[in-house]
Simulated assay, not measured.
Amino acid sequence: MTEDARFEDAAPRPIRLRAMDADDLKVISALAQDAIFPVTEMRWDRSHRRFAVLLNRFRWEDSASGRHPAERVQCVLAVEDVGKAATQGIDRSDKDVILSLLSITFEAGDDGTGAVLLTLAGDGAIRLDVEALEVTLRDVTRPYVAPSGKIPKHPE
């Protein structure tokens, strides 16, 4: 006799998501929480109006399965239609700085414009003024065992 398929039996698949509104962005923010990246891995391409960063994100979607140790995966977070980019609390001259992403939010402006705010640990932030909200998150490598071997935790 055959059994029904279970969620736990599915093979892990790379994530590829697009946010076009603030509710969609909450999903991407939750998956990208505690991602780490070197300061050298963020780029704003003014001519194409795109901001992108290569993240090493914790695999929250598979962390409770118990099938393997804690994992991370490299992914690209891209924000489209960026007219202006600004940072606060980030020393971009120190190429050895590693940043930790806490959340991604959208502050709505007039007529669909607004700002995407990437809040970082240690009071750092990246503000991206956009004409319209379009954010993508796409895994680009296979998962790997997290070097710390631990699930990120936050004080309650």
Rank of each mutant, 00 (worst) to 15 (best):
M1W: 09
E3V: 14
E3H: 14
D4A: 15
A5M: 13
R6N: 07
F7W: 08
F7G: 00
E8I: 12
D9I: 03
A10L: 15
A11R: 13
P12N: 03
P14H: 08
I15Q: 10
R18S: 12
R18V: 14
A19M: 08
A19F: 07
A19D: 11
M20V: 14
M20T: 15
M20K: 14
D21G: 05
D21P: 08
D23F: 13
D23S: 14
D23A: 14
D24E: 11
D24A: 10
L25I: 11
K26D: 14
K26N: 09
V27N: 03
S29N: 09
S29M: 10
S29A: 15
A30C: 06
A30K: 12
A32W: 01
Q33N: 13
A35G: 04
A35K: 03
P38G: 11
P38F: 00
V39L: 00
T40D: 05
E41T: 12
E41R: 04
M42D: 06
M42R: 10
M42S: 09
D45W: 02
D45F: 00
D45H: 07
R46Q: 12
S47I: 09
H48S: 15
R50D: 00
V53R: 06
V53K: 03
L55T: 01
N56G: 10
R57L: 07
F58M: 07
F58L: 06
F58T: 03
R59W: 04
R59T: 10
W60T: 11
D62F: 08
S63T: 07
S65W: 07
S65A: 11
G66N: 09
P69R: 07
E71I: 07
V73S: 01
V73L: 09
Q74F: 05
L77C: 09
A78Q: 02
A78N: 00
V79H: 00
E80R: 05
D81G: 02
D81N: 12
V82K: 01
K84V: 11
K84M: 11
A86E: 13
Q88Y: 07
I90K: 10
D91I: 05
D91C: 00
D91P: 03
R92S: 15
R92E: 15
S93K: 15
S93A: 15
K95S: 08
D96N: 05
D96T: 01
V97I: 13
V97C: 04
I98V: 15
I98Y: 08
L99Q: 08
S100F: 04
S100I: 06
L102T: 08
L102F: 03
S103W: 06
I104N: 02
T105E: 12
F106E: 01
E107H: 11
E107Y: 02
A108Y: 02
D111E: 15
G114I: 05
V116I: 00
L117Q: 13
L117P: 09
T119S: 13
G122F: 07
G124L: 02
L128T: 01
E131T: 12
E131S: 13
A132Y: 08
A132I: 00
A132V: 08
L133M: 15
E134A: 14
E134G: 06
V135F: 11
V135D: 08
T136V: 06
L137G: 06
R138K: 14
D139N: 02
V140Q: 05
T141M: 05
T141I: 05
R142W: 08
P143G: 05
P147I: 00
S148A: 13
I151F: 00
I151N: 03
K153F: 04
K153I: 11
P155Q: 03
E156D: 05
E156N: 02
